[in-house]
């Protein structure tokens, strides 16, 4: 079984010092190592963005896809070999913006895979423009007068569309994030893990400190039941804050918002996916005998 040191390549990542991606890689590679999965048992897919440079920093079977297209690419992989655990990494611009339609339809499809969103609320790789999760009125080089639109609420969208596992993590809490990753990997169905991953270079508002002052763990919220979808949706809406919010009035829950066990997945709907394509017997090509019956 690969150790963490084998899962992480010996290359020094090009992420900025202090980038939330380091902790996300640490959490995921440690969970992969403890899972006991061999390199032949899982595949990783990346979109475009700073997170996507992770394609160079993980040793795994993988595909570095295009802007926003990680989910459909991963869907193809998952359907070809249902024995593989498919882990998709995306950014907020990538997964909620240019590939936002794929997000909705992957949730709807409940395809069995893990979707991790590196949500830094900014386009980091193109140097700091507003992203679909940037707070309203935020000033960036592409929006010097402030963002006009409301941000996407990924947890709310996922729960509303019927996702069967919806969690939010924070890159500043590796142990908590590891626990979310473990549950997402174990989940049967489409597992959404939206991770607040502060961009230390381009987002000077939603910093590590900003989140540390505001996050709390759902498992510590008395009476919260992650199998209650209505409660999950209400919580995702009522805790979706704007940047003007002060720490004492603005608390951001992290943890599992919603979980549905034994859901019907896309793979369940296709009985031919009981085994990988390469294990299927070749279909008969010679149909002469069948035709003879009708002559």
């Amino acid at each position: 079984m690969p150790e963490v040191a084998e899962i992480q390549r010996a290359l020094a990542p090009t992420w900025c010092p202090g980038c939330g991606n380091f902790n996300m890689q640490k959490a995921l590679s440690e969970v992969l190592a403890e899972s006991g999965m061999g390199f032949e048992e899982y595949v990783m897919v990346w979109g475009i963005g700073c997170h996507g440079n992770g394609a160079d920093f993980y040793r795994s079977q993988g595909f570095h896809g295009l802007h926003g297209r990680a989910l459909p690419l991963a869907t193809g992989i998952a359907l070809t070999n249902p024995d593989l655990k498919v882990i998709v990494e995306m950014g907020d611009g990538d997964g909620y913006g240019i590939g936002g339609n794929h997000f909705i339809h992957s949730v709807r499809r409940n395809i069995d895979m893990v979707a991790i969103f590196h949500n830094n609320q900014i386009y980091g790789l193109t140097t700091g423009q507003a992203s679909p999760t940037s707070d309203q009125f935020m000033r960036t080089p592409s929006t010097p007068g402030g963002v006009v639109e409301e941000p996407v609420n990924p947890v709310g969208v996922a729960v509303a569309q019927g996702a069967t596992f919806v969690a939010r993590g924070f890159a500043g809490d590796v142990e908590h994030l590891k626990d979310l990753y473990r549950q997402a990997i174990a989940h049967k169905g489409f597992a959404v893990v939206d991770v607040y991953q502060p961009c230390v270079t381009w987002n000077k508002i939603n910093t590590f400190k900003w989140f540390r002052d505001r996050v709390y763990k759902l498992e510590e919220l008395e009476g919260y039941d992650p199998t209650d979808r209505t409660a999950a949706f209400e919580l995702s809406m009522s805790t979706f804050h704007e940047l003007t919010c002060a720490p004492d009035e603005c608390k951001i829950p992290i943890g599992v918002f919603y979980r549905e066990e034994d859901s019907f997945t896309y793979q369940d709907g296709l009985p031919q996916l009981d085994r990988p394509m390469w294990k299927h017997a070749e279909a008969p090509r010679d149909i002469g005998a069948i035709l003879e019956k009708f002559e």
């Binding site: 386009y123 193109t126 140097t127 423009q129 080089p141 592409s142 929006t143 010097p144 007068g145």
Partner: peptide, 17 residues
């Protein structure tokens, strides 16, 4: 935004602002 075009529209956004 897309590299290496981004600074065209960024600079233009500045004119707007």
């Amino acid at each position: 935004p897309i590299t290496p075009q981004t600074t065209i529209v960024e600079e233009f956004a500045g004119f707007v602002a």
